[in-house]
Nucleic acid binder design. Structure first.
Lengths: 192, 192
DNA sequence: TCAGAGTGAGAACGATCGTTCTCCATCTCG
DNA sequence: CGAGATGGAGAACGATCGTTCTCACTCTGA
């Protein structure tokens, strides 16, 4: 039983529970039971609940970043790579465990009372915007396109979470097509 | 001291506190002190904390709906009314007390454990989408434009909340201009 | 074999939560 | 004036939280 294997299982279990029920609703005892470790080992690996929360956020950031980038790399050209962002969202929204962006949720729950959480959520979103800006640059698009697409992606996440459907991904993708084609200088073909 | 005046003060105080610190972080005693009422009177007006939460959500829905509609009515033509949505957001984001959409936040905090809250948040967002669809219809735009603009507005709210700046309102508005003009059949003039 | 370090299960602790109850001062109305 | 209703301040209650402690048990190494 590797020592970091225990850490990983704790963080993975906390990630699932926090996503499903919210952070404040999940006590250390519930996490202990679900992860199958003793309370002593739990506090041996993490000094406090808030350190577990930060570890979960780091895990989420890595998971999101890698998943998105893997999907983007499947696309053939720069324009398709921009749209791949929304294909990634579509797949995510169909996951049964999808309950909205974990950073938006943790910011809503703890941002006001935990500067650590608020700052990490801000950095995560900033990192995403930089990633989009990088893709926009590769496509030869103007700088203003990146925040527009980022806002579309954020809105799709909250809309899908609250509505409980995956429709928002496709709707945001169609909007992205219009914004991208307009920004890249092509003329948009109006529907008849 | 009117009996409903006390109710209104309790709900208004709860709204401020819940917005500033999150719902679960604000105890009944803190609310009691801030509202300047006795615990007895508080429980005389509301049977439980969750009923106060629902009253706050109703207040937020009414305030949001009225504020948005008032701003929209200032606009001269149907296209300007669609853009007025984002002007309303811009003003809201500049408010010092802005900490994101209260429905997104309450859904993130309580949606998983309170079906009442989740359902009310869903209804609020649905109501907003219907409102946008009504404005789109008046402008002669296609049905698909409404969810696109709604998603933009949602994304602007979360982006502004987490980033801590009001930039997202203007960026979303520019994107809305492109989407609206494309949907209304005008040709978008590409920047040189 | 046996001292000693580490483990697991869970009791215990202090704090805080939502909610109720107690006590007493104040007002009303005849 | 005086009995009864009302309301305020806050103590009290049971539950639950994050965290620590107890204690019996199991390995290890010379």
């Amino acid at each position: 039983m590797d020592i970091s294997e225990v850490r990983a299982r704790i963080v993975a279990t906390a990630d699932e529970l926090y996503n499903a029920k919210g952070i404040q609703s999940v006590g250390m005892d519930e996490l202990r039971t679900a992860a199958g470790v003793s309370l002593k080992k739990l506090y041996q690996e993490f000094p406090s609940k808030s350190s577990i929360v930060m570890a979960v956020l780091e895990r989420r950031h890595q998971s999101w970043t890698e998943g998105l980038d893997a999907r983007v790399r499947l696309a053939a050209d720069p324009r398709a790579r921009l749209l791949a962002i929304f294909d990634y969202l579509a797949g995510w929204f169909c996951d049964d465990s999808f309950r909205g962006c974990g950073f938006i949720n943790s910011f809503a729950e703890l941002g006001a009372i935990s500067p650590e959480v608020a700052e990490y959520a801000r950095e995560h979103k900033e990192s995403f915007q930089h990633y989009v800006a990088h893709l926009v640059g590769d496509a030869g698009g103007p700088a203003y396109l990146a925040p527009q697409l980022s806002i579309l992606a954020e809105g799709a996440q909250t809309t899908a979470a609250i509505a409980g459907t995956a429709d928002a991904a496709g709707q945001a993708r169609e909007a992205a097509v219009v914004l991208i084609d307009a920004a890249l200088g092509k003329e948009a073909a109006a529907a008849p």
